[in-house]
């Protein structure tokens, strides 16, 4: 098939996504995630009397556990299809990427499959995070010295 014709057909069948509706959905879901985060911090610091700094670590671990569990049960992909960035931008997206890679490559063996590919998607976050954090704190260090 000619390239032009092919492109026309692809354009015709690509669903037109409404940017405004998507953004509003992401805003609402992301906001709810923020409220859940704050609620969990207050829950841990009030009822289990953990200092607030450690309570925020507990909150992040809880969210990661919930999203790992939902991903392995197969619900998370369906929810992401609806909520989009509302669940990808929060820490749940990071856990989802790790978990789905682990599930997918599990059958290829432990070392060459699971071990080598678990951080396939989320490794980008860690690598760029570390590189940028190191560079930016080096810059801040140099500015502080001057």
């Amino acid at each position: 098939m000619e390239k032009k014709k092919y492109k026309e057909i692809v354009d015709k069948h690509t669903p037109k996504e409404n940017i405004l509706v998507n953004a509003l959905t992401a805003f609402t879901i992301g906001g709810i995630m923020g409220i859940i985060g704050q609620g969990l911090i207050e829950f841990y610091s009030y009822f289990l009397t953990i200092p607030e700094k450690e309570a925020s670590v507990c909150m992040i671990v809880t969210l990661i556990f919930i999203s790992c569990l939902l991903t392995s049960l197969g619900f998370f992909d369906k929810i992401v299809n609806f909520c989009k960035c509302g669940l990808i931008i929060p820490i749940t997206g990071f856990a989802h990427a790790t978990m789905s890679a682990a599930l997918e490559y599990r059958k290829e063996g432990f070392v060459t499959g699971l071990g080598a590919n678990m951080l396939k998607l989320s490794g980008a976050v860690i690598i760029f995070g570390v590189v940028s954090a190191w560079t930016f704190s080096l810059i801040r260090m140099l500015l502080g010295v001057i």
């Binding site: 998507n22 992401a26 805003f27 609402t28 992301g30 989009k84 509302g86 990427a97 980008a124």
Partner: peptide, 24 residues
């Protein structure tokens, strides 16, 4: 949290990136 997620969604839709690019 809502504003950050909405910004991510708008960038994702406008520039046709993958979710990986957005998180990075």
């Amino acid at each position: 949290a809502g504003i950050i997620c909405a910004l991510g969604q708008i960038i994702l839709d406008k520039f046709k990136l993958t979710p990986g690019h957005i998180t990075v």
